[in-house]
Simulated assay, not measured.
Amino acid sequence: MIEATLCFPLREWTPDERTGDDRERTDEVLLIEKRRGLGEGWYNGPGGKLENGETPRECAVRETREEVGLAVRNLEKAGELTFTLDGDRHTFCHVYRTRSFDGEPTPSDEARPEWVPIDEVPYDRMWEDDRLWLPAVLEGDTVAGEFRFEGGEPLDEADFADHDLERDVSFEDRS
């Protein structure tokens, strides 16, 4: 089983009156378009697999830095997601969010970053399960869920079959 992380940096975007931008103030989330590996071509948050001896928080910080050049801190645990494939546990994912970071996101070989207004998240270009749990995370809630896929490897080509999802979960005693 793979243990992994996702990190969702958030910011408040304020229009610049000097440039004549008349959009309203809004919250944005940093998403990446995956350029390779599992989920290539799809959008998600920065993240990846834990390395030996690494905590989930350390992994989220490292992966976000490696994938988009952002130095995140003050991560808040927002979710724990289990993904099964044909009845076997495939991936356990720790989900974090933060409003604390330094730097500007930059593309890498692995990811193309993009700030997206929360009400415009491209769920049609994401994993099918994301539309079930990610809105809660972006609203400030916590989630725990199991998402079942069928159809064999690779996971990103399997069919989404079913899920269980719980909101308002406490992660105080967890990593």
Rank of each mutant, 00 (worst) to 15 (best):
M1T: 07
L6P: 01
L6Q: 07
C7H: 01
C7R: 02
P9L: 03
L10A: 06
E12I: 14
W13S: 11
W13G: 03
G20F: 04
D21A: 10
D21S: 09
D22V: 15
E24A: 14
R25V: 15
V29A: 00
E33K: 15
G39V: 11
G41F: 03
Y43M: 05
G47L: 05
G48W: 01
L50A: 07
L50P: 00
N52Y: 13
N52G: 08
E58N: 07
E58V: 03
E58H: 05
E58Y: 04
V61C: 04
T64E: 08
R65S: 13
E66C: 00
E66D: 15
R73K: 12
L75I: 08
E76G: 04
L81M: 05
T82D: 11
F83N: 01
T84W: 06
T84Q: 08
R89I: 11
R89L: 05
H90S: 13
T91A: 09
F92P: 00
T98W: 01
F101H: 05
D102L: 12
S108E: 12
S108V: 06
S108P: 08
P113N: 08
W115G: 06
V116L: 14
I118T: 09
E120A: 14
E120Y: 05
P122G: 06
D129V: 04
D130W: 08
L132Q: 01
L132H: 02
W133A: 02
A136Y: 15
A136P: 00
G140S: 06
D141S: 11
T142R: 14
A144F: 10
G145D: 10
F147H: 02
F149H: 12
E150H: 09
G151A: 10
G151Y: 10
G152Y: 07
F160D: 08
A161Y: 06
D164Y: 14
E172H: 13
R174I: 05
R174H: 14
